[in-house]
Amino acid sequence: MSTNWTNRARQICEVHSQEDFCSRWGVEELVGENAAYVFNNAPHRGKLTARDAQRDHVRELLGRAGFEELAYGEFPDRGADEGYSWVLIFKTIDQVDVDRIHDLCQEVFGSEIGWDDSQDGIDVGG
Protein backbone atom coordinates (compact mmCIF):
# COMPACT_ATOMS: atom_id res chain seq x y z
CA MET A 1 0.00 0.00 0.00
CA SER A 2 1.47 3.34 -1.00
CA THR A 3 1.51 6.41 1.22
CA ASN A 4 -0.51 9.45 0.25
CA TRP A 5 2.24 11.89 1.19
CA THR A 6 0.12 15.01 0.62
CA ASN A 7 -2.53 13.86 3.09
CA ARG A 8 0.18 12.76 5.48
CA ALA A 9 1.84 16.20 5.33
CA ARG A 10 -1.42 17.96 6.13
CA GLN A 11 -2.16 15.60 9.04
CA ILE A 12 1.30 16.09 10.51
CA CYS A 13 0.94 19.84 10.10
CA GLU A 14 -2.39 19.84 11.89
CA VAL A 15 -0.91 17.94 14.84
CA HIS A 16 2.01 20.34 15.17
CA SER A 17 -0.26 23.34 14.80
CA GLN A 18 -2.75 22.19 17.43
CA GLU A 19 -0.72 20.05 19.83
CA ASP A 20 2.90 21.16 19.50
CA PHE A 21 2.57 24.81 18.67
CA CYS A 22 5.23 26.02 21.08
CA SER A 23 7.86 24.15 19.06
CA ARG A 24 8.46 26.83 16.46
CA TRP A 25 10.18 24.52 13.98
CA GLY A 26 11.75 21.11 13.84
CA VAL A 27 12.81 18.08 11.85
CA GLU A 28 11.49 14.64 12.68
CA GLU A 29 12.03 11.23 11.17
CA LEU A 30 9.09 9.18 9.96
CA VAL A 31 10.39 5.92 11.39
CA GLY A 32 10.18 2.98 9.01
CA GLU A 33 9.14 5.16 6.07
CA ASN A 34 12.51 6.40 4.79
CA ALA A 35 11.29 9.95 5.19
CA ALA A 36 11.64 12.96 7.44
CA TYR A 37 9.71 16.18 7.71
CA VAL A 38 10.39 19.81 8.46
CA PHE A 39 7.67 21.76 10.24
CA ASN A 40 7.32 25.46 10.99
CA ASN A 41 4.91 27.14 13.39
CA ALA A 42 6.95 30.31 13.85
CA PRO A 43 4.92 33.50 14.14
CA HIS A 44 6.10 36.08 11.65
CA ARG A 45 3.93 38.93 12.80
CA GLY A 46 4.85 42.11 11.05
CA LYS A 47 6.23 40.30 8.01
CA LEU A 48 4.13 37.33 6.97
CA THR A 49 6.15 36.90 3.77
CA ALA A 50 9.14 35.82 5.90
CA ARG A 51 7.52 32.41 6.46
CA ASP A 52 7.09 31.89 2.72
CA ALA A 53 10.64 33.04 1.97
CA GLN A 54 12.09 30.68 4.57
CA ARG A 55 9.95 27.76 3.34
CA ASP A 56 11.03 28.39 -0.23
CA HIS A 57 14.66 28.59 0.82
CA VAL A 58 14.39 25.30 2.76
CA ARG A 59 12.91 23.68 -0.34
CA GLU A 60 15.66 25.02 -2.58
CA LEU A 61 18.46 24.22 -0.15
CA LEU A 62 17.35 20.64 0.50
CA GLY A 63 16.74 20.07 -3.20
CA ARG A 64 20.27 21.25 -4.02
CA ALA A 65 21.56 18.93 -1.29
CA GLY A 66 19.92 16.01 -3.12
CA PHE A 67 16.85 15.45 -0.96
CA GLU A 68 13.68 14.54 -2.86
CA GLU A 69 10.56 16.39 -1.70
CA LEU A 70 7.64 14.00 -1.24
CA ALA A 71 4.92 16.42 -0.11
CA TYR A 72 3.94 19.79 1.31
CA GLY A 73 1.04 20.63 3.60
CA GLU A 74 -0.37 23.61 5.48
CA PHE A 75 -2.76 24.08 8.37
CA PRO A 76 -5.25 25.60 8.64
CA ASP A 77 -6.21 25.43 4.99
CA ARG A 78 -8.66 28.34 5.08
CA GLY A 79 -9.57 31.38 7.11
CA ALA A 80 -7.57 34.21 8.59
CA ASP A 81 -4.75 31.91 9.74
CA GLU A 82 -4.55 29.93 6.49
CA GLY A 83 -1.11 28.41 6.03
CA TYR A 84 0.15 29.52 9.43
CA SER A 85 1.87 26.16 9.95
CA TRP A 86 3.56 24.16 7.21
CA VAL A 87 5.24 20.79 6.72
CA LEU A 88 7.62 19.56 4.02
CA ILE A 89 8.32 15.81 3.77
CA PHE A 90 11.57 14.60 2.21
CA LYS A 91 12.86 11.15 1.31
CA THR A 92 15.74 9.99 3.52
CA ILE A 93 17.96 6.95 3.74
CA ASP A 94 19.16 6.99 7.36
CA GLN A 95 19.64 9.08 10.51
CA VAL A 96 22.60 10.87 8.91
CA ASP A 97 20.14 12.35 6.37
CA VAL A 98 17.77 13.47 9.14
CA ASP A 99 20.63 15.16 10.99
CA ARG A 100 21.82 16.86 7.80
CA ILE A 101 18.31 18.15 7.05
CA HIS A 102 18.14 19.55 10.59
CA ASP A 103 21.50 21.30 10.25
CA LEU A 104 20.56 22.88 6.91
CA CYS A 105 17.19 24.03 8.25
CA GLN A 106 18.82 25.47 11.36
CA GLU A 107 20.90 27.70 9.10
CA VAL A 108 17.75 28.96 7.36
CA PHE A 109 15.62 29.49 10.47
CA GLY A 110 18.50 31.14 12.30
CA SER A 111 19.14 33.58 9.47
CA GLU A 112 17.56 36.82 8.32
CA ILE A 113 16.14 35.16 5.19
CA GLY A 114 12.76 36.69 4.53
CA TRP A 115 13.35 39.54 6.97
CA ASP A 116 15.63 41.67 4.86
CA ASP A 117 16.36 42.19 1.20
CA SER A 118 19.59 40.18 1.37
CA GLN A 119 19.17 36.59 0.16
CA ASP A 120 22.74 35.35 0.63
CA GLY A 121 22.92 31.66 -0.19
CA ILE A 122 23.73 28.99 2.36
CA ASP A 123 26.32 26.40 1.39
CA VAL A 124 24.81 22.90 1.30
CA GLY A 125 28.19 21.22 1.70
CA GLY A 126 28.57 17.60 0.88
Rank of each mutant, 00 (worst) to 15 (best):
M1N: 10
T3Y: 10
N4E: 07
N4Y: 10
N7K: 13
N7E: 15
R8F: 07
A9R: 01
A9H: 01
R10M: 09
R10A: 05
Q11K: 11
I12R: 02
V15G: 02
S17W: 12
D20L: 14
F21P: 01
C22G: 09
C22P: 01
C22L: 15
C22N: 13
S23D: 14
G26C: 04
V27F: 06
L30Q: 09
L30R: 01
G32R: 14
G32L: 10
G32Q: 10
E33D: 09
N34I: 04
A35L: 01
Y37H: 08
Y37F: 15
V38G: 01
F39L: 12
N41E: 09
A42S: 08
A42H: 06
A42K: 06
A42N: 01
P43R: 09
P43A: 14
H44C: 13
R45K: 15
R45D: 03
R45L: 15
K47C: 08
K47S: 06
K47T: 04
L48H: 05
T49V: 13
T49C: 08
A50N: 00
R51Y: 08
R51G: 07
D52F: 14
A53W: 02
Q54F: 03
Q54L: 10
Q54E: 08
R55V: 03
R55Y: 07
R55Q: 11
D56N: 15
R59A: 06
R59I: 05
G63Q: 08
A65W: 08
A65G: 02
G66K: 13
E69M: 14
E69H: 04
E69F: 02
A71V: 00
A71C: 07
Y72N: 00
Y72L: 07
E74T: 11
F75M: 03
P76K: 04
G79D: 09
G79H: 10
D81V: 11
E82C: 08
Y84I: 05
V87E: 01
V87R: 02
L88V: 00
L88G: 03
K91Y: 06
T92A: 05
D94W: 05
Q95R: 15
V96I: 09
D97T: 02
D99F: 09
D99K: 11
R100F: 02
R100V: 06
I101N: 00
I101G: 00
I101Y: 03
H102S: 00
C105P: 01
Q106G: 06
Q106E: 11
V108A: 04
V108Y: 05
F109K: 00
G110D: 05
E112F: 03
G114I: 02
D116E: 11
D117N: 13
D117P: 01
Q119W: 12
Q119R: 15
D120H: 08
D120W: 02
D120Q: 12
G121S: 15
V124N: 04
G126A: 11
